[in-house]
Design a protein around this nucleic acid. Sequence first.
DNA 1: GGTAAATTGGACAACGTGTCAAAGACAACA
DNA 2: TGTTGTCTTTGACACGTTGTCCAATTTACC
Lengths: 176, 176
Amino acid sequence: MLDAAVEVLGRQPDAKLEQVAEAAGVTRQTVYAHYPSRPLLVAAVVDRITAEAVTALDAAALDSGTSTGALLAWLEVTWRLFDRYPLLQHPSVTGMDRSDSDQHHAPVAERLERLIVNGQTAGEFDRDLSPAWLVSATVALGHAAGVEVAAGRMTAEEASESLRHSVLRVYGAGRA
Amino acid sequence: MLDAAVEVLGRQPDAKLEQVAEAAGVTRQTVYAHYPSRPLLVAAVVDRITAEAVTALDAAALDSGTSTGALLAWLEVTWRLFDRYPLLQHPSVTGMDRSDSDQHHAPVAERLERLIVNGQTAGEFDRDLSPAWLVSATVALGHAAGVEVAAGRMTAEEASESLRHSVLRVYGAGRA
DNA sequence: GGTAAATTGGACAACGTGTCAAAGACAACA
DNA sequence: TGTTGTCTTTGACACGTTGTCCAATTTACC
């Protein structure tokens, strides 16, 4: 049933609980029996997607090779997920950060922060922006790229390229 | 009465129409008489704020001096507005972009795009990222900085500094 | 003063969320 | 076979917000 929720809410974040229930082959009240409120359900969905992301991320071996390579791999993996699950761009998730839970997608951000620190101490990335800010900036730029694509103002390739380019610049990477 | 709406919704984007009406000294139905739906009302509010922004922007004489200076001035002005009106960070406005109206806050983005083009042709900014993307990236970074402050993870000064630093890097400015 | 406009008050439908209680299904266990 | 406990279903309902309608009333203008 979480599967159904991931399927429905992942693609259509505004779907009503009734539709989730229907997709799961159950009743609305049964959904409530498992997840007391909508936000809690969404949180569970995000957790599941996060787990998927972590798997993909760890398969990408971020700790080997250059930090720049790892960064690009991270962008590649998360970029794919963002376009598979529009939910991740949706306010109900984006806005979730500041209120109660940073813990949900934390593992993903954590891996990024780790590779940033590696890159900074290795001298690959510039050291005068804090890792925490760079994480936020990276996510923000990825979000922007996704919006451009969704709005039809850029192709997925253009956006992806601009994103890589921009992020590398913010990190102060790629200078001799 | 638009004044009241700006006051209330600008600071508290989730405020109910009743509160807007109360602040305006009228009834809920009277609000509906002027603005048929909530989205239309917030659109009007955004328009008003945009006008305020344009005034401030034009007072800053963006077309004189270096493009870098103009960029920093643009950031300064919009940064101030973003923190005076949390509504601008709210989903109802942020999400408004992609659906129906880009025209509302367009003048602000347009001025940024213009100075980007100036900077690029003058060789002050790098030319291999499109102005349109740089606009989106700038707004996204500004948004991220605002969120960091709102979440208490950075002070307004730290965020503002990181924002300036990051934006300049994305633009490819500040290199010998 | 009289007319047209705007405002008010009250009531109401629609919609989604969340709650509750009672009946039904189904397994495990004796 | 019967019983117990859990999970699901069904139907109903409260609640809050948005949006609509209308008759009565105030306001403003000529």
